[in-house]
């Protein structure tokens, strides 16, 4: 079947098999930031934005993305660098494998909440697992990022 998906601002039209998973479709089109960490929708590594909402690309058919806008970290390099610097300043990126999915969801969170509380942050990001950091460094990065953003305003 033929689908057209807008990936990071560029329309891609392709004849795909019905059971192609969105994650594999995106990686095939150069979005290597999108990672598979589980196959059961639990880890959040494959998070991408579909029409602005964070979704799990490992659990979605590429066919379902027909006519939709998909953003991956490849299309959000400026945001990734801005926020990512705060993560890196904590050393909290560690192995890095969960970072793209985590940062995608942080970007989504900040689009929904301007000033989330600690509880809101934890709950919004609960579906982003990280085995290295124990989450503390990620939290410090988020708080410092928010503080700097506030200062800049």
């Amino acid at each position: 079947m033929i689908i057209t998906v807008n990936i990071n601002g560029k329309n891609v039209t392709e004849d795909i098999e019905a059971d192609l998973i969105l994650l594999d479709f995106l990686r095939k089109h150069g979005c290597y930031s999108v990672k598979r960490g589980c196959e059961t929708s639990n880890c959040g590594l494959c998070t991408v934005l579909m029409d602005e909402k964070p979704v799990l690309s490992c659990s979605m058919l590429a066919a379902k993305a027909d006519g939709k806008n998909i953003m991956t970290l490849e299309g959000l390099q400026k945001e990734a660098e801005e926020f990512g610097t705060f993560v890196a300043n904590q050393g909290a990126e560690q192995c890095g494998f969960c970072n793209p999915g985590f940062i995608m969801n942080v970007i989504a969170m900040f689009r929904e909440y301007e000033n989330p509380t600690d509880e809101e942050i934890k709950e919004y990001l609960a579906g982003n697992l990280c085995r290295c950091s124990g989450y503390e460094g990620q939290m410090r990065a988020i708080k410092k990022f928010m503080a700097e953003r506030k200062g800049a305003k």
């Binding site: 930031s33 970290l73 990734a80 610097t85 993560v87 300043n89 990126e93 970072n99 940062i103």
Partner: peptide, 14 residues
Amino acid sequence: MKKDAMSLVTGKPV
């Protein structure tokens, strides 16, 4: 900062 940090946080294919 870790030498590879910015590559990792920006999702580079590594």
